[in-house]
Design a protein around this nucleic acid. Sequence first.
DNA 1: AGAAACTCTGAACGGCGTCCATTTGCGAAG
DNA 2: CTTCGCAAATGGACGCCGTTCAGAGTTTCT
Lengths: 200, 200
Amino acid sequence: MGRRNQHSREQQREMAIAAAELILVREGFAGLSMRKVADAIGYTVGSLYLIFQNQDDLLATINERTTDAIYGHLRDAIEWQSEPLPRLQQLGAAYIEFAQTHPARFRMLFEHRLPPEMEPRTSSETRIRRMFELVESCVAPLMSAASPQQLRRAATTLWSGVHGIASLAISGKFKWAGDAEFRGYCDDLIGTYVAGLQQR
Amino acid sequence: MGRRNQHSREQQREMAIAAAELILVREGFAGLSMRKVADAIGYTVGSLYLIFQNQDDLLATINERTTDAIYGHLRDAIEWQSEPLPRLQQLGAAYIEFAQTHPARFRMLFEHRLPPEMEPRTSSETRIRRMFELVESCVAPLMSAASPQQLRRAATTLWSGVHGIASLAISGKFKWAGDAEFRGYCDDLIGTYVAGLQQR
DNA sequence: AGAAACTCTGAACGGCGTCCATTTGCGAAG
DNA sequence: CTTCGCAAATGGACGCCGTTCAGAGTTTCT
């Protein structure tokens, strides 16, 4: 066959990404292959390489969407909460909730690494910076007397900690007390850390 | 060829594990294959399946060694430090240090998941429990008035946080201030969290 | 010496990412 | 309406991968 032109490049791209995300959710990171994606959208493997540079390019694209999805989820979660501490705790809980609701996407976001010869994408870094500013904006009211450096430091520390809980929650490496306990650990981490902050 | 019996089963096992760890360090998780391991120890692929059930079995075995190595590293790191808070901070720093020194092994430990049909290994859980008790024993002097449940909770929360820092440190997803900053974030997390604990 | 038991091989299978010569069919030119 | 050029899509090839297993090779027992 030759040109069919049933779908524009952009349409194909969207179809491929959507199909890949579905496979990722259903079969996990390891089960996601270029061949399966091609099958799912009704094209052959070769065609995928007219849309994406290679598999890493496709995966990195999905990861960008995942970052956006997390950002949106966090943003929505704190909309109605204005009290500073519960707001920050809500933010943490939303992060963990996302990880538990979309474990395959969350895992791939942090486990997939671009090979060194592919230059990092500036768009990814922008998205991450944006998410980080959201965290900082929630920490700020709790340490009003702090310098920008101190604020940045506290936000980084705290968010790394929240990420650790989310990360271990979906790792399956530990038998935890209960599945619903993660929210508790998160509240504890944030609450106690902030208490420590304010004491200083 | 047939039986050569130059190496006992146990010797072969050790050789294979050592070779696999070397490949893991040199080429990363993705570059580690059964064929390369077999080549490295001078046997054919088929022979590896007389020693290990499958690749997951080999990887899980390596992960057990990694857990032991982390445990040993943590234990050594706090030996000379008896002051409670610095001791706990030293423990956290050692954890992050291990992750940075052996990123491939650390990553595989948390990223590799046994397929659901393989039953989890009791030995892995024992090792993890042992490591966790080490953490608890370092947290205990800092919250002497707490119940066992409170202690357990604080240790879990805190260690998840430390793990998050280690995890992000080697993820390469974020451009951090400086490579040596992780120790600072870790000290901050532990110091501030403990300050919060004692205030309550 | 011959048979039995054991060790190890090597080829085979299906799946993977990636590449590219070849084919197909659309749109423009005549 | 026909022809032609060229972009679009194919599909087979390559070299990897994990896994299996019939059979070849070696040792041990009788």
